[in-house]
Amino acid sequence: MSEDATGLVLRDVHAGYGGQPILHGVSMTLRKGERKVVIGPNGSGKSTLMKTAVGLLRPLSGQILLNGQDVTALRASERARRGLTYVPQEANVFRNMSVLENLRIGHEFIAPRGGLAFAGRLEEVLRLFPEIRPKLGTTAGHLSGGQRQMVAMAAALMPDPTVLALDEPSAGLSPRNAELLFEIIHRIADSGVTLLLIEQNTRLGLGAADNGVVLVAGQVRLAAPTADILANENIRRLYLGGA
């Protein structure tokens, strides 16, 4: 596998808050077009891993590469311009702005890199999310939790990113809405974007990805195709709560 075909690489990343490390040397490679899910128990460092990957948290040591370039020192906004967009777990839409404005902001500050202009991208994204087409004029804060997740993902897809990072999309949703949301995530994945997913709901998460990473106490315990992880009785018992 050559470097330039690689989407996102983490090399021996140590990271944490206030000098207290939570991640102890995490390495992983996300190939172009790959769908990878990170699972693990509460407090294992999944969210810290995500924040470090997208640039909200600067690692204490280690390296982060995006499309073959070192982006370790770049902030989230700069990584976004290089094709890594992110949907945070909570507060992931601008609540006081309309859905259309949310989508526009998703697009206009991240240079289109020769891609389609706003109107064209809007059409493509709305084709993936027909559910939000009638809501374009609504204030995002008035939407339901599931609709808000969709708007957040749509906004992150607007600039046509190479890597899309989703932080626990099912958090706070009813089981039924989570199922619906994951149908949409399948749709997104099929569109060819590289997907990095962190998920509490291991069954849904593993179902949406090609490969899985099990994170325990800030370290990668296992990296394997999702089918193997699901087949492994020990892992299911130890880390997945028998799911």
Binding site: L56, R75, S77, A80, P88, A91, V93, F94, R95, P159
Partner: peptide, 11 residues
């Protein structure tokens, strides 16, 4: 509205 999300969106 949301400074963290704004940073993520490239602002």
């Amino acid at each position: 509205d949301n400074p963290d999300l704004a940073a993520v969106r490239g602002i």
